[in-house]
Amino acid sequence: MKQNWWRWLGGLLILKSIIIGLLIPVPQLPVIHESIRNLFYHVPMWFAMMTMFLCGVINSLRYLKNFDIRYDRLAVESVNTGILFAFLGLFTGMIWARFTWGDFWVNDPQLNGAGITILMYLAYLVLRHGIEEEQKRARISAVYNIFAFVLMIVFIGILPRLSEGSIHPGKDGNPALGVKGPDATMRLVFYPAIVGWVIIALTIRKIRLTHVYLNEKLLDKE
C-alpha cells in the first residue's frame, strides 16, 4: 500500500478536480459559457491518451532494440489504455459539442484528427490479431506502431494549422494548453487534473499488465 501512495494521490487529484471544478467561478466567454468547465474533464483525457501512446511507442522502440517480449506487452497495454482514454475524451467532447455546437459531431480538423488517431490504433490491434507467432507479432506491430505514431504526430501538428477555420476552442497555437480564457484559478484545477488522469492511466495499465501475467501463470500451471 505504501509504495502505491502516488496512485492514491492520482485518485485524490481527480476527485478534487471534479468537485472543485464544479464549484469555482469561471470566466464567462461567448458561446462556451459555463461549459468551459469541460476543460477539467475533457482535455486531461487527451493528455492521458498521448502519454499512453508515447509510452507505447517508446516500448516498441525498446522491443526492437532488445527483442524482450516484456516490452511488447508494455506497448500493447499502453495502446489499450490509450484507446480507452481516447474514447473517454471523444465522449466527453461529444456531449460538450452537443450543447455548444448543437451536434455530436461536426466537420472540424480537430475532431477528424481525433477520429483518425483512434482508427490508426484500432488498426494496430487488428494487425496484432492477425499474426499467430508471438515474436513475429511483436516485431511487426512494433514497426507499425512507430510508423503510425510519427505520422500521427506530424499530421496532428500540421493539418490543423493548414486548414483555417476550426471552431474548436484553443485553435491558436497549442490546441490544449493555449486556450485563452482560463484564469489562474482554473489553471489551479486544470493542471492537477491532468496529472491525476495520467496517474490513473498508468495505474490502469499496471492492472492490465498484472492481469496478463497472472493469466499466463495460470496457463503454465495447467
Partner: peptide
C-alpha cells in the same frame, strides 16, 4: 483487407491535404 485497414488512417490525412 489488412492492407486497407492499416493504410486508411495513415493515408487519410494526406488525402485531406
Amino acid at each position: 483487407s489488412l492492407m486497407a485497414i492499416l493504410s486508411f488512417p495513415l493515408v487519410l490525412p494526406m488525402m485531406l491535404v
